[in-house]
């Protein structure tokens, strides 16, 4: 019983680790203050779920399609917004997330609206179905590892060096001959693709998705994971997801009414964030924090 619960928790934590690591690429490494990350998560989930439910497309294809469609929307979002700086980009991406949720809620013929999309099949490959929580946990852990290796790898290459340079001072990066808009677009697209993968993993695990799963508050949670773990540290994102999701869990075992637990959870998040911002502004493992930059 307790094992099943822990494995379930690990699946969810793994999915959030992928979300946090992918957001870290755009936000922690490239300096793009993206509050709409949850929309890419949702796009991946809906793409993969709709393909599976309506056309019986196998999980693997759906997962890849989810990643590609999310990346495509990342590029689409990049075109009008990447000339915006800091706070303005944050507002534009926030708008994107709100629009996404509204469209999913109102495009009833496609998404079944607020009632959600039930009956998403469990993934199967070569005749093996990931129906047990244990097997799904292994699947998610594999994807967490792949995401970690990929993002850590590219952030350590000359490509990643340019992303960090853009984060530090975009004007100088331009003056050194870097096509900063192109780099920001690629960064956002990769970030979105991995969020799409996380979405697909989520949809096929829970087998039911609804617009409320992808509300803006989820973005805030992912951003909190980044801040706790540290922007610009891939390991930090893993730690942040772990800390933020594990910390409130013991509350379940306290003899408290359900509504009090929800509120207590929020209080714990708020306290934790405040403490981290005061004691370690760059996060547990971070190297960078957002600050106001003077631009010429």
């Amino acid at each position: 019983m307790i094992e099943a619960y822990l494995m379930h928790l690990l699946v969810l934590i793994g999915i959030y680790m992928i979300l946090a690591m992918s957001l870290n690429l755009a936000m922690g490494f490239t300096g793009l203050l993206n509050i709409g990350h949850v929309a890419f998560y949702g796009i991946g989930a809906y793409t993969s779920a709709l393909l599976a439910v309506n056309f019986g497309v196998p999980f693997w294809l759906g997962l890849i399609a989810g990643a590609l469609v999310a990346a495509l929307f990342g590029l689409l979002l990049a075109i009008p917004t990447l000339k915006l700086k800091g706070d303005y980009l944050a507002l534009a991406t926030l708008g994107f997330a709100i629009i996404f949720e509204a469209v999913m809620r109102n495009w009833v013929s496609l998404t079944n609206g607020s009632l959600g999309l039930p009956g998403i099949p469990k993934p199967a490959i070569f005749g093996f179905t990931f129906s047990s929580t244990f097997s799904y946990m292994i699947l998610v852990i594999i994807f967490v590892a792949l995401t970690y290796l990929f993002i850590r790898h590219i952030t350590q290459t000359p490509f990643g060096r340019v992303l960090k340079a853009i984060r530090e001072d975009e004007l100088v990066a331009k003056s050194l001959g870097k096509d900063t808009v192109k780099f920001k677009m690629i960064s956002l697209a990769i970030s979105a693709a991995f969020a799409g993968i996380a979405g697909s993993l989520y949809a096929h695990y829970v087998t039911f998705i609804a617009p409320s799963t992808f509300s803006v508050m989820e973005s805030i949670l992912i951003i909190s994971m980044l801040i706790v773990g540290g922007l610009g540290s891939v390991e930090g994102s893993i730690l942040g997801a772990l800390v933020l999701l594990l910390l409130p869990e013991p509350l379940r075992f306290l003899p408290l009414p359900i509504y009090a637990i929800g509120a207590l959870r929020q209080i714990i998040y708020a306290l934790l964030l405040t403490l981290i911002l005061i004691l370690r502004p760059s996060g547990l493992l971070g190297e960078f924090r957002f600050r106001r930059k003077q631009d010429a």
Partner: peptide, 12 residues
């Protein structure tokens, strides 16, 4: 070019 005030990438 260089800039009037020093502009390095501070965290690199």
């Amino acid at each position: 070019r260089t800039f009037q005030l020093i502009r390095l990438f501070p965290k690199l």
